[in-house]
Design a protein around this nucleic acid. Structure first.
Lengths: 199, 199
DNA sequence: ACCTGAACACCGTTCAAGT
DNA sequence: ACCTGAACACCGTTCAAGT
């Protein structure tokens, strides 16, 4: 038998997994390092070996969140027969994620009081990059930055809709209506028709 | 002379004003009731007479924020010669507010872990109502809910753009580009042309 | 009605010490 | 390299007591 049951070299991963669950139940305000350590069966000082402070844990959670959302986006794109269907599925995956893990989403897009570490920004960049795959190849006459504008507008709109649902301001069903309306608006716009090519 | 310099019957207002400033510098995580009491020159138990707990103070801040944003929206609409100009000005005011007071904006649209008190939801409703004034009178052939869909989409998009800027993901200038693109998209869309009448 | 101040449980962070 | 456990300063909340 061993006095260190499972967390032998993987305490960091265990803490992150537990923290993600705790985030869903008590929110980021209620997330406590000491409680996390207790649940993991280690001393309250143990997390220090993996996260320099509480903010470092929150940043790691945000980074992990971006990577998970990126995977969800990629998987939504896979097998979509057109850019239009791909975008509709990505939009739904995006909003689903943001509602299911509202506190995590807030962490990912939180206003930076201090400077954000590079790892989080890079993970955000990977999400941004995944959206390229939905848009198809870049056209020859495409204006500089038009694709970026479209991608950012897409992300901003989905995140805004999800925030309305997560805050209880509107019902989930109305959120779906907004997603449909937003996608029609985005894809049928001049910018959308210029930028989203078929594939 | 008096031992209670200024806070005599208005401690609540003083605490709220200080808290709003504190929110800008340290964020909502760093907002401490005891520090607030210290700055106001009262004992650490004094805030309890006005806010039952920390969450009650945060809710009061959110409510106050909605009312201030509502005033900003109303003032942006005043004197606008057309719905189009009105919406452009409202959009700018909205994003300005959200960037200047990013932490407050997060509080206003935060995911509800517990139930939100009615006062906050009502203040949010007043903001929503102010947007009606920008849209002009409702047309006779207008589909049910189309106006609501448009208003919500407008708010969601602006909030999403502001979150991208506030989180340092994009620069302020790029945020302005997104606002312009979003307004063109919204107003030129089928929904927009149906819903925004001239006045 | 509003504020004081002691008391309590909890927290994040630091750090010397162990393995 | 990773974890323990004491120590410290700080916090939210409660509550009897004062005015």
């Amino acid at each position: 038998m061993t006095t260190r049951p499972f967390h032998h070299g993987n305490l960091r991963a265990v803490l992150l997994e537990q923290a993600e669950g705790m985030l869903r139940t008590v929110g980021s305000d209620g997330l406590s390092l000491r409680e996390l350590a207790r649940q993991a069966g280690v001393s309250h000082g143990a997390p220090r070996s993996h996260f320099i402070d509480r903010q470092a844990l929150l940043d790691a959670l945000a980074e992990q969140g971006f990577d998970r959302l990126t995977r969800a986006v990629r998987s939504a794109v896979d097998g979509a027969e057109s850019a239009r269907v791909g975008f509709d599925r990505v939009a739904q995956a995006y909003v689903d994620f943001a509602i299911e893990d509202a506190a995590l989403m807030e962490l990912m897009f939180a206003a930076k009081t201090g400077a954000r570490p590079g790892a989080v920004q890079e993970a955000a960049g990977r999400l941004f990059g995944a959206l390229d795959d939905v848009m198809g190849p870049s056209g020859p006459t495409m204006a500089d930055g038009a694709r970026d504008t479209f991608k950012l507008l897409f992300g901003a709109t989905m995140q805004g809709i999800a925030a309305l649902v997560a805050s209880g301001r509107i019902a989930r069903a109305q959120g779906d209506v907004l997603v449909t309306a937003a996608m029609a608006m985005l894809l049928d716009s001049e910018l959308g028709r210029e930028v989203v090519t078929r594939h």
